[in-house]
Design a binder for these strands. Sequence first.
DNA 1: GGTGCCATGTAATAAGTTACATGATTCG
DNA 2: CGAATCATGTAACTTATTACATGGCACC
Lengths: 186, 186
Amino acid sequence: VDVMSLRHAVLGLLADQPASGYDLMKRFDRSLGHVWSATRSQVYGELAKLTANGWIIASAEGPRGRTEYSVTDAGRAELRHWLAEVEPSRTVRDDALLRVFFLGQLPPDQARRYLMDYAASGEARGRALAAVRDEAPPQDRSPFVHYALLALERGLRLEKMTTEWATWAAAQVDTAGTDDPPATHE
Amino acid sequence: VDVMSLRHAVLGLLADQPASGYDLMKRFDRSLGHVWSATRSQVYGELAKLTANGWIIASAEGPRGRTEYSVTDAGRAELRHWLAEVEPSRTVRDDALLRVFFLGQLPPDQARRYLMDYAASGEARGRALAAVRDEAPPQDRSPFVHYALLALERGLRLEKMTTEWATWAAAQVDTAGTDDPPATHE
DNA sequence: GGTGCCATGTAATAAGTTACATGATTCG
DNA sequence: CGAATCATGTAACTTATTACATGGCACC
């Protein structure tokens, strides 16, 4: 009944180090967002809920109303529980891949173009991830960075696979036919 | 402003062939759900909204209140527009991968176990996809089946990559350290 | 006559997105 | 003193999940 990954994403980031909502958003945008995206209003909302649960506390205040949060012992226990005992939900939603099912509704050249664009975007995303990896502070051997780099490696492999698959798939389209097929047979 | 992939998933399935809400749910559960999952209440809700938009119509009635829907010309045009002109949103959410970022909160043996479970589930999912592929009617060369098989191939490659990555990542954990590291240095 | 599948929905809640709204501080 | 960035939130709306609720038809 209680999955709520965003809640635990915020908790996990705060367990790594105390932060304000603004700080968290930066971390979502530059790294965690490749795996679980969030908006500003969600993050601030979760900070309030986590505080109400007693899993985090406002531990410091700064200029401009800045409020920094830290994880409590209860929060750390909840995080470990979620990591070790709550079965990850496998609800998949991939907008770009969904469309592939329906490409028979387009003429073959447009379907092929869609898949080639898919391949190109995979390449671009792979390059972006490589840039993130190369920007990572080489001396930071903290556990968080270590595991983030493992996840990043998965992203690199994913984009490589995606690019190769989409290129292959585009080549299959010639022989595909459409719902309104051209006047050929065999 | 108008993304709503589930709406177009239903539209796309109906464009392939007329179906009832019940039929659509079966197709979500057995194939499309690997890419975009849906619940019963969502599907029936979307059928009502698509009808209100004029993109589908109730084209036949059967026993037990069965209502079969078909796509209209307007619906087919909308589907093609979505396929060819609406930029796919790349909002990613992967619960299982999110946890990897926070594995430093667990002792190394538990982190390693998590990744090995990840690998095992990738293998299982790969086998399940292969079973779906092998059940596909070999004589059905419809465009929908053709493109569904392309998407399925992507799933097979994804699960293979995931399994290999998770196995590799589990092997990296030895040298990882924890937020509460054992008393060693160097 | 009973089991299993067919078949449809509503209500309540939770989660996520987008637009709106405001203002302080720092650095050049 | 102006621009960029820091910093926080609310309101309205859309999407998604879960639990509830009902009943017909076919086959053995």
